[in-house]
Design a protein around this nucleic acid. Structure first.
Length: 224
DNA sequence: GCGACAG
DNA sequence: ATCTTGTCGC
């Protein structure tokens, strides 16, 4: 059975079931590098592009960049991002040369309706520590964090249990939503993301992955 | 039934 | 995510 044949209800059941296997808490003993993953699309050609970058940690020097693309097989459905982005991301991880100590994803971890967002799904699948760093809200309740950089507020699930943190990654900008995906805790996720911040809203690994995936996209577009 | 809704 | 020009601000 292909991923593209999975029904929405099946996918949701799988998420709820696999969510039980997640290990949330702590952090890797030693973090020497941090990976960032971003995906872009060429809708007209039905192509998904994925870039995985790896930075040294905490120095944040670029260690490697990996480019991949393939045809997309699933539409975007809120809460089921994995079905659309999972295949190209997993393919990308087959090609990277350096073993990442932890990975930051453009999306949520356990701050998700079934506690199993993209970062959790990929993290569990690859048995890698994973953090979700989303640019917008998906699930939970929270108070607006203060305007100052580093201010944060807890994201709670429907049982009032913490699922993540809303973090002001820069002065006076829209906050980002941080939640652990797998093999890391909430506070540790925030700590690591904070250490990956330079002078922008988005942590460096994700920001650079975004820049590179769009450059890659432009390059591919010239061949059409 | 009516909104909300990662990328 | 993507479609799109100029424009306000640090």
């Amino acid at each position: 059975m292909d991923l593209s044949d999975i029904s929405i209800n099946e996918a949701k059941e799988i998420q709820s079931r696999l969510s039980q296997k997640l290990v949330i808490g702590g952090k890797p003993d030693k973090i020497n590098n941090v990976a960032g993953v971003d995906v872009a699309y060429i809708n007209k050609e039905n192509i998904a592009l994925c870039v995985v970058v790896i930075f040294s940690y905490p120095a944040l020097e670029l260690l490697s960049v990996n480019y991949n693309h393939d045809t997309v097989t699933y539409p975007y459905i809120p809460g089921l991002l994995y079905l659309r982005e999972g295949p190209i991301i997993l393919k990308a991880f087959e090609n990277i040369k350096i073993q990442p100590d932890i990975v930051i994803f453009d999306g949520h971890g356990i701050a998700h309706p079934r506690r199993f967002g993209l970062a959790s799904h990929i993290g569990l699948n690859l048995n890698l520590p994973a953090i979700g760093c989303a640019k917008s809200f998906l699930y939970g309740s929270y108070e607006e964090p203060a305007k100052k950089k580093g201010s944060s507020s807890t994201l709670y699930d429907e049982y009032n249990k913490p699922a993540g943190v809303v973090l002001r990654s820069r002065e006076n900008v829209k906050p980002v939503f941080i939640s652990p995906g797998h093999l890391v805790g909430i506070d540790e996720s925030v700590e690591i993301v904070m250490n990956c911040l330079a002078r922008y809203r988005i942590p460096e690994p994700l920001r650079f992955a975004d820049i590179e995936v769009n450059r890659y996209k432009k390059k591919l577009l010239m061949n059409f």
